[in-house]
Write a protein that binds this DNA or RNA. Structure first.
Lengths: 213, 213, 213, 213
DNA sequence: CATGAATGAGAGTTCATTCAT
DNA sequence: GATGAATGAACTCTCATTCAT
């Protein structure tokens, strides 16, 4: 999980170039098909250096992935704290907005996550995914519980199912943002800022209100 | 997309063995990492034959994937027709049940779809995914429109958003079935039949009713 | 141990070129340092072909080594049968002469054996060496037992120790032939035919008679 | 052959750690497969230091090997002097015992010698081996000459051949001690102290007396 | 003087694809 | 039409050596 100190002592800019190229490569090609050749020739360093920094391909992947997860967590924590007193609808909106924002700033991170989802032989895949899902559900769970305690929810609401639906919908929303092909009916992919915000509001509204009378 | 006539004239049983092995290999390893070596040695035919039948790896993949999509469509069409007169809640339940059923009978097909979602260099990936999503939304859209016309929906419901949420939630439900790690809060993965049906009902209820008073 | 049939069906001449190059490479460099690159570029075939024929480096080595052992055994069996009725001194001389003859015809085989002796990580090294030593001792043992039964040996001779000494001395004699550096006092390495036969006779005499009165 | 003065001025303890690690590595892996990486990481010094001290891999090997040879010579000289007045049979026994003793105390040195025997590309291999053999034969030669002068030998004994046989047999005896696989008929490898001494006596007896009446 | 980061050649191995049989 | 031998590029990983600090 931890790269060699050598790597950590590298000039900030070089580090970022390596991380960037590796994240790109993994998110474009998944773990197994990602090529260390491609990474080093993009960055312009010797092949051996990568192995000096990270030991092996697995070590590189674990580091890049771990970094990404940390970034996402930090981002979400910020949103949670910043909206602590807002009503649920606003908190969901802000969460999704933050997700959109983050996905745009770090598109590779989201793709990296999707790739990890799909690939079987990724090192520690099971642990990685389980921990991500758990974190995500805890986050949404705490939002919903707070809302329930404040009386914002209907009686008898199934919190688990609600979490599941919200999680899945937001996840898909972000997928649609990253992958044009998943942008089924919502026209998210090429939307401008205003349009996107309307979409977010609409989705969150629908998530909260359901469709039946 | 179309294999060489030579392939089509093969004995039914041999064709099925080839298709099965190829589907397994692609769904286990994705497109790029799938090995034609592995496929032919599993089936017990000559490597050259695959290239005779399908031209190249790309052709093989396209054929296998296309076949899978046809199977899914046929399955869904059946459900739609069979439940034409039922209320929306039942139709959703039956759809999800059918999805579960199908995923269990043809686990490789679902995995194949997830892999395709994740991999960038898959031939015609964009077209493939777009068409799948469109089909899925059309299907759900027609269910919801029928329901609206029958007065089952609340006024002012945002059909697009509803479709999106239902699609995403069902998709995730099936993912949780296939991938233990996605089974966040719902405990789907190891559920017995009864438990699973309760989960399906709960999810569909929540999808229809929302959480707010 | 068995190469792919593909290899066995190769034209005799090509097979021999491959076997020769591989035996050379292994006997020059040992197992680990032997380079498949070097072998294929010497033979002029593609790198992949070696792996098609033998699976991996280990398979190649095992095949080459096994072949060599078979050749040696066949050679020794011939000598044993041809000298069945001769006195021990002649049989030893003929054995050593045969060894010299063989070592000259197939110098790589002897070097291969020495290399295997020295290297730790050779596949099945332990089994290989044990079986070679056992075979060698059985061979000499049967010679000595026959001699004893014919009354050619002094009473109370320690057969085990005698075997050991003869085995070691002959082994070293052949080493001296192959490796100029081991040619300590005997001047074997550059000896002409007559000289060599004298050396053989002298060694066998000394082996039989010892040094004490 | 001589390391940089920098090395010689190192604290005794550090020098010994470096020598030990290098001897281990070379004797375990041979020259070419020995890894300087492994050596430095075992000792805990910088990789560059090795090159500073010894120039290159070759220099390091030559130094380590030379050192080992010196140790052996010193050991043998001691035995020779200590047994100057004993009869030949005792001197041989003591020599072999000393060899056993030394091999046990410094197993890497013996392995190092065997490895050098086997590997072709070792620097100055030819010179190294020639000098070792010559020394060994000189040593045994002086033992035998002394014995002849004292009338311990039969008339007409071939001293050269006797030397050769004794050298080869003792060498093999030590090999059997180090490599279980060479322990052909004698059961040396797992022998306890008493048993081993009996084996040594038996071998030396047989060496001196031969097998014929 | 010691350090260890950087290098790039070379290792074994796998693979899609071609084509003579 | 079916076969599978041959190919060579690409893969991950190791290593001795150099040299700026």
């Amino acid at each position: 999980m931890q790269p060699n100190p050598t790597f950590l002592n590298l000039p900030e800019e070089k580090k970022r170039r390596i991380e960037g190229a590796a994240a790109d490569e993994f998110s474009d090609n998944g773990y197994r098909s990602a090529s260390i050749n491609a990474i080093v020739s993009k960055v312009g360093i010797a092949k051996g250096s990568i192995f000096q920094y990270f030991g092996d391909k697995k070590g590189l992947f674990l580091f890049i992935f771990g970094q990404s997860v940390e970034k996402v967590k930090a981002y979400l924590k910020e949103v949670r704290d910043a909206t602590a007193d807002a009503p649920l609808s606003i908190r969901l909106e802000e969460t999704l907005k933050a997700g959109v924002d983050f996905t745009r700033k770090h598109p590779v991170i989201y793709r990296l996550y999707v790739r990890t989802l799909a690939e079987k032989e990724i090192p520690f895949r099971s642990e990685i995914l389980t921990s991500i899902r758990r974190y995500s559900l805890e986050y949404l769970g705490s939002l919903l519980e707070t809302a329930r305690d404040k009386g914002e929810l209907r009686d008898g609401v199934n919190l688990e199912a609600a979490c599941f639906i919200i999680d899945a919908s937001m996840d898909r929303f972000l997928q649609a943002l990253t992958l044009p092909h998943m942008d089924g009916g919502l026209g998210i992919h090429n939307a401008d800022e205003d349009e996107l915000n309307r979409r977010i509001k609409a989705l969150c509204n629908s998530l909260l209100s359901g469709v039946t009378p």
